[in-house]
Structures are given as C-alpha cells and as structure tokens.
C-alpha cells in the first residue's frame, strides 16, 4: 500500500482523501456512511446548571445541511472574547461527522460573548431541533 495512514487514522477520517480509493463509492452509497451528531452543552450562569442539546442527522441532504453550518463556524479562531464579568454562559460544542470528505470529531469551547454569527446560528438551530426532555407530572 502506498498510503501509510491506516495505522493511526484508519477510522474513516481519511476515507475521502484518496479519490481513487476503491471503497469510497461503495461507502458513500450506504446510508450509514453519512451521519452526524452535534451536542451543545452549556455551563456557567448564575444558576450553575448544565443543560445540553443533541441532534443527529443521517442521509446526504440532512447531513450536508448541517455541515454547511458547521463549516461556517470559526473552529480554529481561538478567539477568547472578553473575560470581564461573572456568571456568563460557556458553550461546549462537539460535532461528530462521518461523511465521504469530512469525518472525525471537532469541539470548541465558546464563551457566551463570542457566541455570534455562525456559532450562534448553529447553537440556536441545535437547541430548536433537539427533542425536549418531557417533564413528568408533578406529584
């Protein structure tokens, strides 16, 4: 084999890198080859509670719709925001992707003050589409 990445990254992360790799097209055709999960966890705030929201997507159109949004976020910006103040929210955003050209996991910790633009769009959409946990009837 001319490729030498299998020993460490044979998890599918490079499946799309070699355009001539024999199993790419076959993998692409399987529904399971395109899957995505996004978890948004919020910590901090005066209440000190840590709610989280998770969405999953499968299938080409669904996954790609999320990926456009995911890709527009400044994952590597490392913008710290202004640390002034107290009791602000902190968001942890984690994306797990399995798709032909994009695979793997990425995460970022985003202070509330930096939750603007695509970060905000992503978090708002995850919150909106995550299934709310039902509350039992009060005793």
């Amino acid at each position: 084999m001319s490729e030498q990445t299998d020993d460490e990254t044979g998890t599918g992360a490079d499946a799309g890198d070699g355009a001539d790799a024999g199993d790419t097209a076959a993998g692409d055709a399987e529904a399971g080859a395109r899957a995505l999960r996004i978890t948004v966890a919020r910590s901090g705030g005066v209440a000190g509670m840590s709610p989280s929201w998770t969405v999953t997507a499968e299938g080409e159109s669904d996954v790609d719709g999320w990926l456009d949004l995911v890709e527009s976020c400044p994952w590597d910006a490392g913008d710290p925001g202004d640390p002034d103040g107290a009791d602000r929210f902190v968001y942890t955003i984690r994306v797990l992707v399995q798709a032909p050209k994009v695979a793997g996991e990425r995460d970022a910790r985003v202070p509330e003050r930096d939750l603007t633009g695509p970060w905000r769009d992503l978090v708002d959409r995850v919150k909106a589409e995550a299934a709310p946990r039902p509350r039992r009837a009060k005793r």
Binding site: W75, D76, G78, D79, P80, G104, D107, A108
Partner: peptide, 16 residues
C-alpha cells in the same frame, strides 16, 4: 478536516 495542533479550547484559554 484540518485539526489545529493546539485544540481551540486551549488557544482560547491561553488568549484569555
């Protein structure tokens, strides 16, 4: 997908 060698949260922490 390019992964930064220094994870984003760590960069954020340093800059903070």
């Amino acid at each position: 997908m390019a992964h930064s060698i220094v994870p984003p949260y760590l960069l954020a922490r340093l800059a903070e």
